[in-house]
Structure formats: C-alpha cells, structure tokens
Design a binder for these strands. Sequence first.
DNA 1: ACATTTGTTAACCATTTGGTTGAACTAAAT
DNA 2: ATTTAGTTCAACCAAATGGTTAACAAATGT
Lengths: 202, 202
Amino acid sequence: MKKEAQSTPESTILNAAKGIFQRKGMAAARMQEIADEAGINKSMLHYYYRSKQLLFEAVFKSAFSTLAPQLNEIINADNSLFDKIINFTQNYISFIVKHPYLPNFIIQELNMNPEFVEKLFSEKMPNIDKFRKQIENDVKDGLIKPIKAEQLFINILALNVFPFVGAPLIKGFLNLDDDDFLKLMHERKIEVSNFIINAIKI
Amino acid sequence: MKKEAQSTPESTILNAAKGIFQRKGMAAARMQEIADEAGINKSMLHYYYRSKQLLFEAVFKSAFSTLAPQLNEIINADNSLFDKIINFTQNYISFIVKHPYLPNFIIQELNMNPEFVEKLFSEKMPNIDKFRKQIENDVKDGLIKPIKAEQLFINILALNVFPFVGAPLIKGFLNLDDDDFLKLMHERKIEVSNFIINAIKI
DNA sequence: ACATTTGTTAACCATTTGGTTGAACTAAAT
DNA sequence: ATTTAGTTCAACCAAATGGTTAACAAATGT
C-alpha cells in the first residue's frame, strides 16, 4: 500500500472518532467503541488526545470548519443574490447528501454546549454587512421585495438545512422510505432556489 | 395549598424528567439529577417507572404528543391554504417560544432512535391526501404555482421549526444575543407566512 | 384492632466508564 | 552496542451509574 492520503495514528483516531461521535453524540459515545473502530488500543486515544473531551473538541472543530465555509458562501460570495441562492442550494444539498450526519451533529452539540458558540465565533466573526448591503441595494433597485437580511439568511438556511436535521420527522409524517426521501432532496436542489426567488422577486 | 392542577408522584417525576431529558438528552441525563429535581429519592424513579429507558419513553411520548397535533394542523385543518399557512405560523411560533427545548429534543432523539419513527407513526399514521388534494385544486384553479404537496409541507416545517432547532448557529452567524433573537422570532410570525405565500401565489 | 397493601428511604451492588501505569517494543541517535 | 525518545498494550483503578434490597412507615381494607 502506498501512502493513501495521509494515515498518521492521529488521523486514524480522528476519523474513527468522527464516525462514532457524529452518529451517537458526545454523551453516548464510548472511548472503547472509538478505539475498536480505529483498530487500536484504548490507551492510544489518551496518548494522542488527552481526554474524551479533547478528542471530542478536535472532532467538533473539524466538523464545524467543514460546514462553516459552506454557510459563509451565503454572506460572502461575490455573485448576484439570485445566483447566490441558486449556487448555495445546489452545493449545500449535494454536500450534505455526502455527509448526512454533519448538520445534526453540529446543531445538537451546539445546543448542548452553548459556550462553544462564542468560542467558535469569537476568533473569526462572520460579518453580514456585505450581504445586508446587497439586499438593501436589490430592494432599492426594485429587484426584490423588502426583507431584512437576517430573515432572508434564516430562511435560506432553514429551507436547506432543516430537511436533513428533521429527516426522521419528515419521513414519519410523509410516510417516506429512504429512497423516496433522497429523491425529494435531489428535487430540492432546484425546488428550493425557485421557492426562495419566487418569494422575494418583484 | 389546594390541589394545584394534579400533582401525583407520577406527574411530579414526569415533569422533572421532562426538564432534565429535554435539556440534556437521554444519554447525558442522570437518574440522580432527575430525582433531585423532583425532590425525591432515586428509588422512587424505579418504583414508578421501572427503568431509565421507560421513564425516557414516557417523557418522549408526552413531548411528541404535544408537538404532533401542531404539525397535523398543516395537513388536516379545514381552512383555505393561505389561512392555514398564516394560522400555523402564528400558532407554532408562539407555541415554541413557550417550549423552547421541545423541537430540538424530539428531533435529536428521533435521529438517535430511528426505530421510534415507525413505532410512533404506525398507530396513527398521518395522511397527507387531504392536503395534497387541496394543493392540486389550488394549482388547477390558478391560485398558486405548481408545487408538490410534500415539498410545500417540508418548506412550511423548515421555515417554522428550523430557527429554534438551529438557534445557536443562527445566533453565532448573525451575532445576536437572546433578546435580538427573540425579537426576530416574533417578527417571523408574519414574516414567514408572507414569505411562503409570496413564493407560491400567482 | 389487625392485617395487607402501597409508598418511601438509606444502604448496597454489579457493571460500565474514562483514565492511568508500567512494562515491552521499536527505531533512530550516539 | 547502548542510550534515548517515542509508541503500543494488557492490566489495573477509582468514580460514577443504573438498578436492587430490605427494612420501615403510611394508608387502606376488614
């Protein structure tokens, strides 16, 4: 075997930990289970990451720094508002279909550890001024109906993120199997951007 | 003290358990903590509810049966589509502001125990046929743009439920304190229904 | 009054869990 | 060859956790 990607012990452990933590959450995850998944002795976990808490934080940061840039696209990309909505929706849904546990994991642990929020956002605070300017200009130019940047941002996030976080609820209410559900999600790659654009365009 | 509402030992325990379980989740909740919150001995928990699992299920069912009727309004209420959207949005947001931990708790535990889904929905399966008919008729009558009932249902749910589930994420990205956030949520009682109606009306 | 059921408690128990230790093993550096 | 630093593991440990027990108190029925 050549050197596939990079496979240091650290990365082996981190990947195993990602799988377990993201599927079961911090509280329900077991160090032994992570060790098994990584195919190593439990002591190694503590050797490379001192404690469960630190291992968890490494996993969480890694997960968060995967998701955050995606969301940043909304407020920082340079294209027009409608293009932005179309692109983000396309990209985000494709992205999450590949990482189905990500958004739920992040949201869940963020709800459990509210102190994470300030820690994560204190360093590189996102700035919505650019996005707000864009909205205000488009409103002034008569391109879209008046709407607060914050509300539009929340709506874009909600329409794209929620279906994956609330998947079991949706599957239950609409009586969908995994296949039906995935089909609906792929439809949403155009459905959602149309919906948003129709909602705001004049 | 007269008999306030009803305060059987069972209900005292259940209420304490609700608080702890909904705030910390099944895995992180401790039986001792629930006992303390209820002001009773830990053995009482096992006396009235046999195990942590059963106590948890009682809490979950109670929580779910509080939330489910709210969501059922969308697919079963008798009013016109636009009224339905307006009413649901108003009611749901007011409802959740009073029960902030509910949707996150349900969604989280549903994600952790996918087998709950069939158990919960097998008895009283929701039926979207009525809602689907309504959409199809309104489309035929030229009242709204073509849209699948499933997609519209997901969108309504997303726009209303997500902001509360993803609150920490939103607060972080938009740099909001609790007060700003709550203000935005109250704005959404009309904002969201306008948004949806604009998106679909012709 | 007595017996039986129901409710309540402190002490206890077995298991699980995160974490530690010390010895063995490796591989480069001296 | 010997030291030295890093790596791996089996065995171990203390604390926590869900759950049980046995004795005791309070109702409840007869």
